[in-house]
């Protein structure tokens, strides 16, 4: 039985297979409308996440399956002190597959060991969020036709942003990929990502504080939010906060085939004037995420059409 806890649990070949399935689902959704009939997905969300939970639920419904679960810890037995392992074991008796979000890092791994059914990590604290990375990869694939030889800009909070860490790890597998890491000094990519992911895989990268300088050379720009609470002092935040807002004026210097991505929710880091620009891909990531979650559920349930 397979689980998905970390994006690196999947081989490059498996990710290619998921992309292939997701592409077919997007092209011929009716072909998949009954393939998970009589199967049940449990969405165990110990902290709120409307978008991810709805994506999983929509994915299962579109596969013809059913959904049960809860959307906050207060409405689960966790509020009575039940352990994650016990909750997973009980839910595993009701459902065929589990998608779990939990504020504690490693909770889905504990659940996977106890559940008796496949467990998908739908986000564990600031640790992993592999299905967001699947959505990101599928979006890059659809926009750029592949992963090789891309220059990928990661912008904003690169220190705490789990989505950029996972994306960097997943993209490091492909040849010719280079990264431009755009962030304030305080929010640079952690040392272990630089050492264990980028340098260990021989991936070229540069670090810069200037989004404007980096933009013209990028194939993909992955934006994240710079949060005030991440700064040591307010003066630095005020000095830098507008540097990482993508506006139409800044985008004018970018390539015509740039893919602008964002894991959402967006606050103000991408100006709404860009939403109608053909380079804006952040809402495409949402629909792509649903297709990849459908492909993933099928894979873990070992369902074929």
């Amino acid at each position: 039985m397979r689980h998905l806890i970390d994006i690196m649990d999947l081989t490059g070949k498996e990710i290619s297979e998921l992309i292939s399935t997701a592409s077919d689902i997007a092209a011929r959704p009716e072909r998949y409308a009954e393939c998970c009939r009589r199967k049940k997905l449990a969405t165990l969300f110990f902290e709120p996440s409307t978008r991810t939970r709805l994506s999983f639920e929509a994915a299962m419904y579109e596969l013809g399956g059913q959904v049960l679960g809860f959307s906050e810890a207060a409405s689960s037995s966790a509020s009575k002190g039940e352990s994650v392992a016990d909750t997973a074991r009980v839910v595993g008796c009701y459902a065929d597959i589990i998608a779990m979000r939990h504020p504690k890092e490693g909770a889905p791994m504990v659940a996977a060991a106890a559940a008796g059914v496949p467990v998908i990590n739908a986000g564990d604290g600031g640790h992993h969020h592999p299905t967001q990375t699947l959505a990101d990869l599928f979006t890059i694939y659809r926009e750029k036709g592949g992963f090789e030889n891309l220059t990928v800009g990661l912008c904003g909070d690169l220190k705490f942003g789990r989505t950029v860490h996972s994306l960097a790890a997943a993209m490091s597998r492909y040849s010719g990929v280079r990264f431009v890491l755009i962030s304030p000094e305080e929010l640079r990519v952690p040392h272990y990502i630089v050492e264990d992911v980028l340098k260990a895989n021989g991936v070229p990268f540069i670090e810069t504080e200037s989004l404007e300088d980096a933009l013209p050379e990028l194939d993909v720009l992955y934006m994240t939010r710079v949060q005030k609470e991440r700064f040591f002092n307010e003066a630095d935040y005020l000095r830098l906060k507008d540097s990482y807002i993508l506006t139409g004026k800044k985008l004018a210097a970018a390539r015509s085939d740039l893919a602008v991505m964002h894991p959402l929710p967006r606050v103000n880091e991408i100006s709404v004037e860009i939403d109608d620009d053909p380079r804006a891909c952040y809402f495409k990531q949402v629909i792509n995420g649903k297709f990849m979650r459908m492909a993933l559920i099928m894979k873990l349930l070992e369902v074929e059409v």
Partner: peptide, 13 residues
């Protein structure tokens, strides 16, 4: 030592 780790709150792990 990570306070956000599941081992910080579930004693049997």
């Amino acid at each position: 030592k990570n306070p956000r780790c599941i081992t910080s709150c579930e004693q049997e792990i």
